[in-house]
Every structure is written in C-alpha cells, then in structure tokens.
C-alpha cells in the first residue's frame, strides 16, 4: 500500500529519497515514542529524565521538517516543488490560524487552549488534505 502510494505520488529521485527518509523518521518516532511512554510511566520521577524523555520524541519530527526543507532544495521538478510548497502553505496557514485562536482564547477567555499535539495535528491534517486535493486534481485533469 505504502509502495503504491509512494509510486503514485511522484517518481522523481528527490521525492523518492524524501519519502524513504520520512518513513525511516516515522519508524524512529514510533520506537522513541513507545520508549518515552514506558520510561515516563515506569522511571520518570527524576526531573532531568522527565525533560529528556519529553524532548526526545520531538527529534524525529524535527528531522522530518528539516528533511522537507532539503527535499524542496533538491527537487528539480518545478511543478512538483510548487505543489509541495502550496501544500505546506495550506498546512502553515491552518497552523497559524489555530495558533492565533488559541492565543486569544488563553489571553481573553483565560481558557486552557488546545491540548498537547493538537496544533501539529492541525498542520499535518491540513497539509495532507491539500496534497490529497492536488493528487485528485492531477488525476481528474489527466487525459492519459
């Protein structure tokens, strides 16, 4: 399924390298997240280790963001690069919009704001939806 999706999305060498890296980072994220959850639950009483295990799961995600930037500089297909940037902008727009709402909720309503991971999820969902729309548009407009 993943291979099929990767093949359908794009065939440029830069995109393939990027997709491979993302899968590796996601596997690393899953492993690190499981380890962090276990250690925090069983051995997370010391303050240093609490901070350590809180920060560690973010590293693979930051890796994906950095890799995304590298992909954009490596991609030689200008149309695919533009589409990727559009999708990222949709994701960032949704993220910033949610962030502003969150800030005002905290500032004026003294509300708790969004819970943990909600903002990044908003970015990921908006970015994914934009890519899905692009994929469907590329499909419908294809004449071959």
């Amino acid at each position: 399924m993943l291979r099929w999706w990767m093949g359908r999305c794009s065939a440029t060498p830069a995109a393939k390298r990027y997709q491979r890296s993302v899968v590796q980072f996601l596997v690393a994220y899953a492993v690190v997240l499981l380890c962090a959850s276990w250690f925090v639950k069983h051995d997370g009483h010391e303050r240093f280790f609490l901070y350590f295990w809180s920060v560690i799961p973010a590293v693979p995600i930051i890796g994906i963001i950095v890799r995304m930037g590298r992909y954009l500089s490596e991609e030689t297909d200008e149309f695919l690069k533009l589409q990727k940037m559009h999708a990222l902008l949709v994701g960032l727009g949704a993220l910033l919009g949610a962030l502003v709402v969150d800030d005002f909720l905290r500032a004026f309503a003294h509300a708790q704001g969004f819970g943990p991971f909600v903002l990044f999820t908003i970015f990921a969902v908006a970015n994914g939806l934009a890519q899905l729309v692009q994929y469907l548009m590329n499909r419908t407009q294809s004449d071959e």
């Binding site: 794009s10 065939a11 440029t12 297909d77 200008e78 149309f79 695919l80 533009l82 589409q83 548009m137 590329n138 407009q141 294809s142 004449d143 071959e144």
Partner: peptide
C-alpha cells in the same frame, strides 16, 4: 520532468 508537470502544462494549470 514528471508526467504530472507535462499534464499540468498541457491543461493550462501551470
């Protein structure tokens, strides 16, 4: 370039 690029140019989307 990718086939998507050719298609986008042909259909005037890019």
């Amino acid at each position: 370039v990718s086939r998507q690029s050719v298609n986008a140019i042909e259909t005037g989307r890019y």
